[in-house]
């Protein structure tokens, strides 16, 4: 398999403060990679660095080309759909407008309506909420909407920042089932950032463990999940 995303020596920070100290990780075409780590480890910052939202150094190869230093808009136009922390919903707009916005930079506008219908098949609840203001949807529905919005880009790569955050356990379970299905059926590649390690390791092929801006462990998800220390610190059993 070819590498879809390859990150080498990634550094990033805010103002004078450096938060990431040289990360190396990669993601296979069609694969799912997860970045695990405690609060403040730098997971969100990593995703922001990939999308040109923070000042970064090193190399970020997407389909073999360095995208470091590209503007956020341009990265998105390359097919990287980032569902940010807090979901990034356009709260004042309707559900359907949110979906239209997901596809707004696509060249093939004539297929957009078809894709919207497909999203409604995946997420029937969104169809019921079509013309409702997105800000009034429940947390779970908003997360579904965020995923659907990202899919509307027909992305080559999806970046998900703590998709389980703030959701009830049952909803989280349903959402990860959907993500698994999307990965299988649509061959969507995903980089998932999570604090909920058990869930993320269940869906991922590879996993990386982040501590204060450095990768302290990496390997196949199964192997990481079996590790004694990881179990104790992150999985809690």
């Amino acid at each position: 398999m070819t590498k879809l995303l390859e990150v080498k020596g990634l550094t990033a920070g805010y103002g004078q403060v450096r938060v990431l100290h040289g990360l190396d990780f990669s993601l296979d075409e069609g694969g799912v990679t997860t970045l695990l780590g405690a609060n403040g480890a730098g997971k969100t910052t990593t995703l922001r660095a990939i999308c040109g939202m923070v000042k970064a150094g090193g190399e970020i190869l997407f389909e073999g080309k360095n995208i470091l230093g590209k503007s956020t808009e341009d990265v998105a136009r390359l097919g990287v759909a980032h569902i940010p922390e807090g979901r990034g919903t356009f709260t004042r707009m309707t559900t359907e407008e949110n979906l239209l916005l997901g596809a707004i930079s696509r060249k093939d506008q004539k297929n957009v309506q078809k894709d919207i219908d497909k999203m409604y098949d995946h997420f029937p609840r969104l169809k019921q909420r079509r013309l409702q203001q997105a800000g009034t949807l429940s947390g779970g529905e908003q997360q579904m909407l965020a995923i659907a919005r990202a899919l509307m880009l027909r992305p080559r790569l999806m970046l998900l920042d703590e998709p389980s955050f703030g959701l009830a356990p049952l909803v989280v379970k349903e959402m990860f089932e959907i993500l698994t299905a999307l990965n299988k059926e649509e061959n969507a590649s995903m980089l998932i950032v999570e604090q909920n390690a058990a869930l993320a390791l269940g869906i991922a092929d590879d996993a990386y463990l982040l501590e204060t801006g450095s990768i302290v462990m990496s390997g196949p998800a199964k192997q990481i999940g079996a590790d004694e220390n990881v179990r104790r610190s992150y999985l809690g059993y």
């Binding site: 999308c51 939202m53 503007s71 956020t72 808009e73 998105a76 136009r77 759909a81 980032h82 940010p84 990034g88 919903t89 356009f90 709260t91 004042r92 707009m93 916005l101 997901g102 707004i104 930079s105 919005r149 880009l153």
Partner: peptide, 10 residues
């Protein structure tokens, strides 16, 4: 309404 999210959709 939301420039950060708008950039993320391109």
């Amino acid at each position: 309404a939301n420039p950060a999210s708008a950039r993320l959709v391109g």
